[in-house]
Write a protein that binds this DNA or RNA. Structure first.
Length: 284
DNA sequence: AGAAACTCCACAAAGATGTG
DNA sequence: CACATCTTTGTGGAGTTTCT
């Protein structure tokens, strides 16, 4: 499997377009020898509080102890059971998307058991947020959403750091993907190329040629996979970079325009003002 | 105003799946 | 097994929108 690291840039470049929608969140207790086999229509995250959850998913088995997390992808069948002690866990159903895509995690191998050691701080915050949420205290839904964002960020971050292609068990490689699931892998060269050649004008046609697709199909493929069009993604990356350069206070507007592949400072300035509602000269 | 980016749509090849 | 049907993947034309 191709290295996912380049694709993870996406979350930074498009952070303001990330949407997280929590469908439900609750605590559950299951008695000894409970078992179930099902699948969920959306993402589902379990935070094991007590007992052991035995999991079988995508032909791989594992056990989740208190503190561990289990991340389920939509429409992936699994079997879960518990032993002598029963089990207790929090669950949260959610969707996590960017732009037009509501299931952006599908292209990353993150599902399965996440060892508690990697996420202990974030999971603890989420649990406290859940207590407030259960008591219906003011803004607790916003807090819960924030804590889930934090928790998911940590899971993604860990996968990026370790170059991991998933936790154990990882069903995403074994899973027969149907429907409109797109593969981020094919776009790897594009992300690399984009970040490398930011200092000169980049035509969409070049990017399409890079991975051997027709220009129009490339635009469609990119949008279905990433959630925004390639042109918009490029614009977004340039505006993020422009903001960073301005904060450094080391470059003139003219220099930044050059660094970002704009033909002249006027074009850059116009693009910048459109994005940030302020000209670059009055940004910092 | 002209070029580039983008959308929509029709269509085709190839592979997967269903059925008698 | 053979044929039909559906799905996925991809192309290209035509037209619209956005950018410079």
């Amino acid at each position: 499997m191709a290295n996912q690291t380049d694709s993870f840039h996406l979350f930074n470049e498009l952070s303001e377009h990330v949407t997280l929608r929590i469908a439900s969140c609750s605590a559950l207790y299951h008695p000894p020898h409970w078992s179930e086999s099902k699948q969920h229509p959306d993402y589902d995250l379990w935070i094991v509080l007590a007992g052991t959850v035995n999991l079988r998913m995508g032909g791989v088995s594992g056990s989740a102890k208190p503190g561990d997390l289990i991340l389920f992808y939509p429409n992936v069948p699994y079997s879960a059971s518990t032993g002598e002690d029963g089990c207790r866990f929090l669950y949260v159903h959610f969707d996590f998307g960017i732009g037009d895509r509501s299931r952006i995690l599908d292209d990353f191998s993150l599902s399965g058991i996440v060892p508690g050691a990697f996420v202990s701080e974030e999971a603890a915050l989420f649990r406290r947020a859940f207590e407030r949420y259960r008591n219906r205290s003011a803004v607790s839904s916003v807090r819960l959403k924030g804590c889930l964002t934090l928790l998911l960020s940590r899971i993604i971050e860990h996968a990026a750091e370790s170059g991991a292609s998933g936790f154990d068990p990882s069903p995403s490689t074994a899973l027969p993907k149907k429907g409109t699931v797109r593969h981020m892998d094919a776009l790897q060269p594009v992300f690399g190329y984009l970040h490398e050649h930011l200092q000169r004008p980049i035509a969409i046609r070049e990017l399409a040629e890079l991975i051997g697709m027709s220009e129009k199909y490339f635009i469609t493929y990119f949008k279905n996979t990433v959630g925004v069009t390639p042109g918009y993604y490029l614009y977004q990356v340039r505006m993020n970079r422009a903001r960073d350069y301005l904060y450094l206070e080391q470059y003139s507007i003219k220099q930044i325009a050059e660094l970002l592949g704009y033909p002249d400072p006027y074009t850059f300035s116009k693009a910048f003002k459109k994005y940030y509602n302020r000209p670059p000269s009055r940004f910092v």
